[in-house]
Design a protein around this nucleic acid. Sequence first.
RNA 1: GGCCGGGUGGCGAAGUGGCCUAACGCAGAGGUCUGCAAAACCUUCAUUCGUGGGUUCAAAUCCCACCCCGGCCUCCA
Length: 494
Amino acid sequence: MTLQLFNSLGRKKEPFVPRIPGQVGIYVCGITAYDYCHIGHARVMVCFDTLVRHLRAGGLQVTHVCNFTDIDDKIIRRALQEQVAIEELTTRFIAAFHEDMAALGVKRADVEPKATEHLPEMRTMIATLIDKGLAYESGGDVFFAVDRFPSYGRLSGKHLDELESGARVDVDLRKRNPLDFVLWKGAKPEEPHWPSPWGDGRPGWHIECSAMGVKYLGEAFDLHGGGRDLIFPHHENEIAQTEGATGKPWVTCWLHNGFVNVVDETGQKEKMSKSLDNFRTIRDLLAAWRGETIRLFLLNSHYRAPLDFSLELLDAARAGLDRLYGALRAACEVLDVLPEPTAVYWAREQQERPDGHAQRFREAMDDDLNTPRALAVLFDLARMINRTVGECQHGGDKASLQQQVALLRGLGAILGLCGDAPEHHFRFCPADAAGQESEQGRLSDEAVERLIEQRTIARRNRDFAGADRMRAELAAGGIVLEDQKERTLWRREA
RNA sequence: GGCCGGGUGGCGAAGUGGCCUAACGCAGAGGUCUGCAAAACCUUCAUUCGUGGGUUCAAAUCCCACCCCGGCCUCCA
């Protein structure tokens, strides 16, 4: 079975066949750097990071491009509000983006181009479009003429005539067709601008992805992804510009992930978005939950389905992750070292692993990135590991345990999970504002270890009342104990 | 108005014609283990898949109608 992906262009699953055997180019629409990222952004990045990991596990050489929009209306407005230079603002939020993504286990893209660093490419493309009669100057701006691109609307399933009849705001008299979109905006006073044959100004939003996509991945490449909300008009416009300029088909397969919705107290749902001001930033959440927990939460539903966000669901995800790491930790009781969390590489591994788990995992991922099903395999493996640990403790064979744990880590790595030391997971200490009082009440790792030692002595002396008192003391600090044969493990409760 | 997703157990979520008396996770119940716990393991937890029709030997899965939720058509991941 080969990888099948749901192509938004045509709205059906298709076998994924790289244009160049063994190689894949993927462009993911990144962020506009003017604010912190929220769960919606996290979803896109985790989703495509996972896809890239899976492609690589399949032996493909992937070039992953993810851009930054570092000039646009919102950025200008925000910089003005905060009284900072535009570049300072964008630099700050790009750095924040990198931090957040690192916490979520999202690998850096191979290329992270910025719009402001690609003015020449954009101008060239605009010039070509004008030459070809697909774009025109009007009132200091340059517009793309949608009428001149016959397949406009193909991606979004919209027809020009229907769009035009729809109620549209702001009829711009400089446009020949109200749907024409701007490629180049004439400079306004006080705004950053660059020179161009059509006068000073700055690029429109859509053109940057076209120009940078072509530059780094070519006039034709395999995959282009982003959130559902980008289908129209952003991606529709990208296609029109690029294919208009090059005269040939651009992207083979368009991928779009579903929204993250927010449910309020009354049960009302709505899409999480900046403009609705109902978003939770990743950074907020990272105070109370590990990034990996957020990642598991996101991967627990299929990427194209809508996803409702709630704190309760994050707690459930944390409990699920506890289970996975619990198995790894149990394995530590038998194995001296855990196998490296290196992603399974199918080309090499598949013959050696006829065992059902790897197979099931791969089939799930190959089926349009069915991460919930892939995750189920991980949980099944965890159960098996727990069982095997029990057998090992009764004199069973360690080799199969070693293999199972290696598989859990190897498959986990494709999802970007289970890569840490179990203790790192269980001792995670929420830095969250849950309270100032918790600041004092919080026990340091060392203090916990000390109390546990005392308790061990008490238990040895069969002073169970004393031991229970110490356990209660630890419990008050959010510490849960697990007595093993030889030692006592502990974890912090959420 | 046009177009697009989604409605599966207490919750989340797979499954899209027979392996489904519905995977997996969370929560719950009982048991084993334990000084007691915790964790783990075992057992249990939807004869039912928004509603009503229909097609079929067979439907959560296909067709028709309807209801509900969300989104896009304007910046948005």
